[in-house]
């Protein structure tokens, strides 16, 4: 069975996010246990970043939300302004995707790092600065005292993202949200930054909600991984199970679409069709237009049900069917021109 053994630190219950007339997130539920790393994977438009922003109540006012978000048992939606500030300054910290845009360009790196410690934590300038220098060294920034006096535009993207991570660690949060923290960085820097984030949060016992489109990265960094499609979680598995036995045809397709370094070179596979945002997806199973296994029954939305060590929202997934078999099935069907037929059966409107 799924479900954390201890009470969840973060619980998202049936979260809906809606722009006027356009559903964007359609009933996301997930639990993150204290100290656990949870990866939320999906294509752009799947609603993963909105989910993370909803956790911090950082969504634009034009978007309506429904459902509940509980942090340590407290309803985040019911926080008073002061309670919300306390939650943001001590409970949850967020590492944003693009540090260049998310760090104030006209204030020094030192200002950025010490602002929270001094304003919210009430630390003296000297103490905040020495703490910030220590954090910079921990996240692998060299010449830390000099960096404190530099401006954000004088630092590389990788260094700036380390500064962002240091600023989040400074608040000693119990949960770190990381929204594609390495997507704006080059490949070697990505690995280093991810390793630093992973190590330091584990040392401090902070939980992690890691938003990414990179299945491999999520599996490498996280304990459990949820896969989102068109505003819903379609599958949730322990990370080690994910690559061996995906339960949902979408996950299986994503896994096959990765380029391989070893083995014979061949044409790169892709999931047929294009990723759909929630408001374009068909009724019933949102993936059925693109799914090789789609049938009549998929017109009814499959519930997210427990299966094996995880949860899955697919009528066909069952405990006996290993994911790899599933995968070969998919390959044959895709070759037989099935996507076209499925497209004609599309009954959305």
């Amino acid at each position: 069975m799924s479900g954390p053994r201890e009470p969840a630190l973060l619980r998202v219950e049936d979260l809906h996010v809606e722009a006027p007339g356009r559903p964007l997130v359609r009933g996301v539920g997930l639990d993150v246990a204290p100290g656990e790393a949870f990866g939320l994977v999906g294509e752009s438009g799947s609603g993963k970043s909105l989910t993370a922003r909803a956790v911090l109540r950082l969504l634009p006012r034009a978007l309506r939300t429904r459902g509940r978000i509980l942090f340590d048992g407290a309803d985040v939606g019911a926080f008073t302004p002061a309670g919300l500030r306390r939650y943001r300054s001590g409970g949850v910290g967020m590492v944003f995707q693009d540090p260049r845009a998310h760090i104030n360009p006209v204030r020094s790196v030192g200002d950025f790092l010490t602002e929270g410690l001094r304003t919210v934590g009430g630390a003296s300038r000297r103490r905040a600065e020495s703490e910030a220098v220590g954090l910079l060294e921990e996240v692998g920034v060299d010449a830390a005292p000099r960096r404190m006096r530099q401006w954000p535009h004088e630092l590389s993207g990788g260094l700036l993202q380390r500064v962002m991570i240091a600023s989040v660690l400074a608040a000693r949060p119990r949960l770190i949200l990381a929204d594609e923290p390495t997507t704006a960085l080059d490949a070697t820097t990505q690995e280093e930054v991810m390793a630093i984030l992973g190590d330091l949060r584990r040392e401090r016992g902070a939980a992690l909600l890691f938003i990414t489109h990179d299945l491999d990265l999520a599996a490498a960094v996280c304990d459990r991984v949820g896969v989102m499609y068109a505003g819903r979680v379609v599958e949730e598995l322990p990370a080690r199970e994910l690559e061996r036995r995906p339960l949902h045809p979408y996950t299986a397709g994503l896994l096959r679409a990765r380029p391989r370094i070893r083995g014979p070179r061949g044409r790169l596979e892709a999931v047929p069709g294009r990723p759909l945002p929630a408001y374009e997806a068909p009724d019933g199973c949102a993936f059925r237009d693109r799914c090789p296994r789609a049938a009549e029954v998929c017109a009814a939305a499959p519930p997210l049900r427990p299966l094996g060590a995880g949860r899955v929202a697919c009528h066909f997934a069952d405990e006996g069917a290993p994911g790899t078999d599933f995968g070969e099935d998919v390959g044959e069907d895709a070759g037989g021109g099935a996507p076209g037929e499925i497209g004609e059966e599309d009954r959305r409107g």
């Binding site: 950082l58 943001r88 300054s89 944003f96 998310h102 760090i103 104030n104 304003t119």
Partner: peptide
């Protein structure tokens, strides 16, 4: 947005 996310007044 970052400054708000950090819980600054």
């Amino acid at each position: 947005g970052t400054a708000e996310a950090r819980g600054l007044p």
